[in-house]
Simulated scan of single mutants.
Amino acid sequence: MQTLLSQLLRDSDEYTLWIADENSKALLSAGIHFAGSLLSNRWDIVCAAEATGIPANFCDFELGSKGEKYTRIVYPVSKEKAAVHHVINAAAEVLQYGGELLLLGEKSSGIKTYAQKAAARLGSPKQLQKHGNDYLSTSVFHAGKTGVPLEDTDYTRLRQPEALDGLWSKPGLFGWNKIDVGSALLVRELPQCLPADNTADFRVVDLGCGYGYLSTQLASLLPSREKLYIQATDNNAAAILACGKNFQARNIHGTVTAGDAGSEIRTGTAQLVICNPPFHQGFQVEGDLTDRFLQQAARILCPEGTALFVVNEFIPIGRKAERLFQKVELLNKEHGFCVYRLTKSNIETVKYRAN
């Protein structure tokens, strides 16, 4: 898909919008020539675009938020159907008359169905071309001929799914309307990782926070702790919106910030890191994601700090963590998940170095 996408972007004008996914990093790193602007719901992609001089907007697929009109929208389709439907709907509002919506994807992405839906929404005949293993759908916007909006699960709205016990979430997040089994297992191990001194400062970092489940559960275990500060971070714009809403609704002292696996957090500032790292990037399994989260956790923790990770049992986090942490403990293995406690340095070593 990279070759096809690269060609489409090079041939686009300054009024083209590129909706970029995680697979766009390679093109950005190669310094692709693109005259238009980029939009992404991923913080790292926006940072990579800005580093190459491409105007970029980090948001949750908020097309046309500044009143822009485009001649072309180029969109490698997302994994989540609600997001794709939302973008197709929005294209009918932000394309100039005769403007094009170009959807790209492999057969397994649902591209054939999306091509038909986009054509109907924009009032255009279906155009679908095969390029190797990839498909390109071209739909032309005809005002006055547009079809009814697609069902997008009311994509932009924050809501409180019944399964989340009052927490706010939204489409655009993995498992947005349920409690992740791995995260629930991690929460069970939290009490043994909390300090006994209830008066001391306690700074926690939630890496890859999602809608904030781990942070809110930790805060509920320490309801009277005045010096608890939680810094939650995620690469996904929908996560920032939902987690921020939950911090506000539950009066949690802390911040919710965008970042790439915790890249924006200062070194050596946390006593505890909690993390349920993703291992998928869109349609692909990304092998180095766990390594990046482990490296950032080790950097963020203070010398005597602890990290609590939960991962799928097939990820060899124990072996990966040994290079970065003094002590690696498997606390639980259940339902296909493993919970590990990772200690950066033991207390005896810290005291010895201080003397």
Rank of each mutant, 00 (worst) to 15 (best):
Ala239Met: 05
His86Pro: 10
Asn276Ser: 15
Ile315Cys: 06
Arg188Cys: 01
Phe325Thr: 11
Pro191Ala: 12
Tyr211Ala: 07
Asp11Thr: 12
Ile274Lys: 01
Ala51Leu: 03
Gln248Asn: 06
Asn198Glu: 09
Ile300Lys: 05
Ser109His: 02
Ala242Phe: 02
Asp60Glu: 10
Asp288His: 00
Tyr155Phe: 15
Arg319Glu: 14
Ile73Gly: 06
Thr146Ala: 04
Tyr155Asn: 07
Gln96Arg: 15
Asn246Ser: 08
Pro149Gln: 08
Thr216Lys: 05
Cys275Ala: 11
Ala258Tyr: 02
His142Asp: 10
Trp176Val: 06
Phe61Asp: 04
Glu62Ser: 14
Ile45Trp: 04
Leu102Tyr: 08
Gly36Asn: 14
Val256Met: 05
Asp201Ser: 06
Tyr15Gly: 13
Leu294Ala: 14
Leu28Val: 07
Glu329Asn: 05
Val74Tyr: 09
Ala270Val: 08
Arg10Pro: 00
Glu14Ala: 14
Thr306Gly: 00
Leu324Pro: 05
Leu28Pro: 03
Thr71Lys: 10
Gly123Leu: 13
His280Lys: 06
Gly172Pro: 09
Ala120Lys: 14
Phe174Asn: 04
Arg10Asp: 00
Ile347Tyr: 01
Leu241Pro: 02
Ser6His: 12
Gln116Tyr: 13
Leu136His: 08
Lys79Met: 05
Ala90Cys: 10
Lys130Ala: 11
Thr153Asn: 14
Glu313Lys: 13
Trp18Ile: 11
Leu272His: 11
Leu103Ala: 04
Ser109Val: 00
Val74Leu: 14
Ala261Arg: 03
Glu14Gln: 12
Val87Ala: 01
Lys79Gln: 07
Val148Lys: 13
Ala270Phe: 04
Val311Asp: 01
Gly144Ile: 08
Pro76Phe: 06
Asn177Met: 04
Ser40Ile: 11
Thr113Ser: 15
Val311Phe: 02
Leu308Lys: 10
Lys117Gly: 03
Cys59Arg: 07
Glu62Phe: 08
Ile315Gly: 09
Val148Met: 11
Cys302Arg: 13
Arg353Met: 12
Ser24Pro: 07
Leu218Phe: 09
Leu102Ser: 12
